[in-house]
């Protein structure tokens, strides 16, 4: 398993060329080969979502994908969120304001997953839809309530900033809505 193959990946806007074992996961590639330790692996089996990163703008499990599969594609990690001087972005500020993190381990994945939701559904403050969007990320500390509040606060700000009209169509039904 030791033969290595070249891979080119764009991460946080910067191109990286590396040689990796084909079996190396994207998570290990980001953490160990690129030194981007903000991506956290908690279950290693795709069930907890703590390793979520954005691949071409959409959240995926970096523990269930091989680095070579990300070849030629664009990855965003938590390191992309704050400004170069470390200044927190709007969502990060909302997380601290609403106490949406305790131990901080799931936080990078939660932020990125929420980021995608807010990009694709600007201004949507509906708690149910936010809970659906982050359902694939397990947080053991917070009970989620303050995370939902933080995301909704950013959505609220989007409404104000961009005079967004909110569509009220119901979301796709999810499991156990069996009545």
């Amino acid at each position: 398993m030791s033969q290595r193959v070249p891979v080119h990946v764009e991460v946080n806007g910067r191109g990286y060329d590396r040689e990796v074992e084909p079996r190396r996961t994207l998570a290990d590639f980001l953490r160990e080969d690129l030194g981007l330790k903000g991506t956290h692996v908690a279950c290693e089996h795709g069930f907890c979502g703590n390793c979520n990163v954005l691949l071409d703008g959409a959240a995926i499990r970096s523990c269930l994908m091989f680095a070579v599969q990300a070849g030629g594609r664009s990855v965003e990690t938590v390191e992309s969120l704050a400004g170069s001087d470390g200044e927190l972005d709007e969502l990060q500020l909302a997380f601290t304001e609403h106490h949406a993190l305790q131990c901080g381990f799931c936080t990078p994945a939660m932020l990125l997953t929420a980021k995608q939701f807010l990009r694709e559904n600007p201004g949507v403050t509906d708690a149910r839809r936010i809970r659906e969007a982050i359902n694939g990320v397990i947080c053991r500390c917070t009970g989620y309530q303050q995370i939902v509040a933080a995301i909704a606060a950013v959505a609220q700000a989007q409404q104000t900033a961009h005079s967004i009209r909110i569509e009220t169509a119901p979301p796709v039904r999810v499991a156990q809505d069996t009545r």
Partner: peptide, 19 residues
């Protein structure tokens, strides 16, 4: 008050053991 621990955690700079 907002936690003073938060900024580094929010930036993915929590420096957990595996980091």
């Amino acid at each position: 008050m907002n936690r003073v621990e938060d900024p580094r955690l929010l930036r993915g700079e929590g420096r957990y053991i595996d980091d």
